[in-house]
Write a protein that binds this DNA or RNA. Structure first.
Length: 425
RNA sequence: CGGGGUGUAGCGCAGCCUGGUAGCGCGCCUGCUUUGGGAGCAGGAUGCCGGAGGUUCAAAUCCUCUCUCCCCGACCA
């Protein structure tokens, strides 16, 4: 993509409404723009990141056999009355009526709908276990939206729902999600800490939140400092699972097995939440399947969420410096940013064009800054939007066919021949 | 929902107290000079001063109502 032909509305100043770094950088980098409180438009670069995150989630879900569906955002109140949540869910649920005065709502979650689909079509134990998931916009009318897409009212969420014959099966589904989630976050360059969480009415150990450590996080975590040593290495799920980690509401100092000097307290951003809730919905909905003995069995369910749009902000919180965002390669809107330091210089522009075309031919996602701007502007914008690699070509290098590579994360620079530079990607 | 703030050009802000018909920086447009870390000079465009009502000869400015957005507390991916 050439910048002169792209939609790239960066800002030099921090908009005053932004408080935390991810929000500031997302606005300044032209990733999002606010439409109303807690509701955002995703601009081209932001959308690219959002889609990359969605794709990773999708791949990891599909890999473990979960099936994607897409349910409506607008739901009728009927099913919610059936589960009793129409009354229980407070003002967070956006309700309205259609032209026939029927009560409708914009879904904050989809347990009712998915259970309804399940009971309609699945009648035999032979067709489960089954996990259906979707990546879909949700709306929760938060009392106080804040921090940009971190706590928006409209947000993109991956929500999955498992159906099993019994609790043992449900535990397996739960474990599959637990592991898939860890792999998913790891692929995004994040170290997610699974912490025991409040599972609501059901209780037990079957609820975990996945937290990203960040000073601006809204959750407080207590965990064994040993967990920090697991960073970066190959995922050792058994080890991770054996270590203590709990959300504030589940942490009881009197029974905590971790000695005080090894116990860490930190802030985290909740990017995922999984829980098992048994027959909470299948019971009132009559979601049963015929067992092998010919007796109907009420299915055991779990639900599993990932905050997709929140992840965009969470990744930035976890990966940035004073100059801007540092995208992990897997979610970067482009892999390479090509900076033409002097578009008016023919040799320079010719070399840039050649690099651009060669990169495209290799299937490299490249953003070419061909604007007639000063070098400083381009460097600043490139650092701001945080592409992993910068290829810088100016008149001096171009004269001898040399290009400069800058690694955004480390700031490290290398002077390379055109061919060697291209080979890097 | 309670408490506090805010709204003036695309962004950041001044002007409001003490009414006289809107300004600064950045950005944007034109030209020239510049050109390896957010350029210089010269010219130019852009505003229902959040909205409605009122006071007044005259309102961005004073009064009333209303809306928006942000911050501090209880819910959540």
């Amino acid at each position: 993509m050439k910048l002169t032909q792209y939609f790239f509305p960066t800002l030099r100043d921090d908009p005053q409404e932004a408080q935390i770094v991810s929000h500031k950088l997302m606005l300044r980098g032209g990733f999002i723009t606010q439409s109303s409180s807690g509701i955002y438009s995703w601009l081209p670069m932001g959308l690219k990141v959002l889609n990359k995150i969605s794709d990773i989630i999708r791949e990891e879900q599909n890999k473990v056999g979960h099936i994607e569906v897409l349910m409506p955002t607008i739901q009728s109140s009927d099913l919610w009355r059936e589960s009793g949540r129409y009354e229980d869910y407070g003002k967070e649920m956006l309700r309205f009526t259609d032209r026939h005065d029927r009560e409708m709502l914009y879904g904050p979650t989809n347990e009712e709908l998915i259970t309804d689909i399940f009971r309609t079509f699945i009648k035999s134990y032979k067709h489960i276990p089954l996990t259906l998931y979707q990546i879909q916009w949700k709306f929760r009318d938060e009392i106080r939206p804040r921090f940009g897409v971190m706590r928006g009212r409209e947000f993109l969420m991956k929500d999955g729902y498992s159906f099993d014959l019994d609790m043992e099966g449900a535990k397996k589904s739960y474990k599959a999600h637990y592991e898939a989630y860890l792999r998913t976050f790891k692929r995004m360059g994040l170290t997610a800490i699974p912490v025991k969480a409040d599972s609501g009415a059901i209780g037990g150990d079957m609820s975990h939140e996945f937290q990203i450590l960040a000073q601006t996080g809204e959750s407080t975590l207590y965990y064994d400092s040993e967990i920090e040593n697991l960073n970066g290495q190959d995922l050792d799920i058994d080890k991770l699972q054996s270590l203590y980690a709990a959300a504030e509401e589940k942490h009881d100092p009197s029974i905590c097995p971790v000695p005080a000097d090894k116990l860490k307290v930190a802030k985290g951003i909740e990017v995922g939440h999984i829980f098992y809730f048994g027959t909470k919905y299948s019971d009132p909905f009559g979601a049963t399947v015929m067992g092998s003995d010919g007796e109907p069995v009420t299915v055991h369910m779990g639900s599993y969420g990932i905050g997709v749009s929140r992840l965009v902000a969470a990744i930035i919180e976890a990966s940035h410096d004073d100059n801007g965002i540092i995208w992990p390669e897997a979610v970067a809107p482009f892999k390479v940013g090509l900076v033409n330091l002097k578009p008016s210089d023919e040799t320079t522009s010719a070399l840039c064009e050649k690099f651009y075309v060669s990169a495209l031919a290799k299937g490299i996602e490249i953003l070419y800054d061909d604007r007639d701007e000063r070098a400083g502007v381009k460097f600043a914008d490139m650092d701001l939007i945080g592409l992993p690699f910068q290829v810088i070509i100016g008149p001096k290098g171009a004269a001898t066919g040399r290009v400069e590579i800058k690694i955004r994360k480390t700031g490290e620079r290398q002077d390379l021949s055109f061919e060697d530079a291209l080979k890097l990607f």
